[in-house]
């Protein structure tokens, strides 16, 4: 309300805010293009690979693999992402491993996505009826062939909506990377705000930018889903 009042009482103030918003847009978008978006994409790809391996370990008959996967998922899901990032970036140097901000963030987020998405993929694989495995076996396929050719393609379809959720959460979670000194979009907003104290304006502006990215992603998700739904009756 104060902001609105001051705008209405003072046209000069309004112009000033517009000009700050305009001039801060470019650095923020740059932060998004240079860090937020690459961080999200690289992390998601690495996280997915990790998730698939973890899910396979969880459904395998090997007790050792199963236990390793369980412990990994339990640790990641049971501790805050921010703490994990701090351990990697601020903690590991005590052991002599110093990792730059961006790689630190990639490691931290990938481990995080890997754990959460592995549960999604595991559940999707388990949701495919037993009859599909048996049908694969009945035409002479072994376990690996059946998993790869029959079960996995169907599981992918099931897992797209929850994986999209993970992806969209990830876009927003990358703002935590600002705390391990990655100059991504939110950190840019913080930096600019700390010079002119227009916190409400700049944080609102960065919120809108996040919202735009997430909305675009939701639209892409819808397209992928309808493409994968071609073999399902509607």
């Amino acid at each position: 309300m104060f902001l609105l009042n001051s705008i209405f009482q003072d046209p000069e103030r309004f112009d000033q805010l517009v000009s700050i918003a305009q001039s801060s847009l470019l650095p923020m978008v740059k932060g998004a293009i240079k860090y937020t978006i690459p961080l999200t994409i690289i992390t998601f790809v690495l996280g997915l690979i990790l998730a698939i391996l973890t899910a396979l370990a969880r459904i395998s008959s090997s007790k050792i693999l199963n236990t390793i996967a369980r412990i990994y998922v339990s640790i990641i899901r049971g501790t805050p992402l921010l703490v994990q990032l701090f351990i990697i970036f601020y903690g590991l140097p005590n052991l002599g491993f110093t990792i730059d901000p961006f790689p630190s963030a990639i490691i931290g987020f990938s481990l995080n996505v890997g754990a959460y998405a592995s549960e999604i993929i595991r559940a999707a694989i388990l949701s495919i009826p037993k009859g599909q495995w048996e049908a694969g076996y009945s035409i002479g396929m072994n376990r690996t062939q059946t998993l790869k050719r029959i079960i996995f393609p169907q599981a992918v379809r099931v897992s797209i909506p929850p994986l999209s959720n993970t992806f969209i959460s990830l876009v927003k979670d990358t703002s935590l990377a600002s705390l391990v000194l990655v100059s991504e979009m939110f950190r840019k907003a913080q930096e600019i705000a700390s010079t002119n104290y227009e916190f409400l304006l700049l944080y609102s502006e960065v919120a809108i930018l996040y919202w735009i990215i997430c909305t675009v992603l939701s639209i892409i998700q819808g397209r992928i889903e309808s493409r994968l739904d071609r073999y399902v009756s509607k």
Binding site: P129, G131, Q132, E134, A135, S138, Q154, Y231
Partner: peptide, 13 residues
């Protein structure tokens, strides 16, 4: 060759 009660066709093919 096995024919199942519920067909068990591969729905994605």
């Amino acid at each position: 060759g096995m024919v199942f009660q519920n067909y068990n066709l591969f729905p994605h093919k």
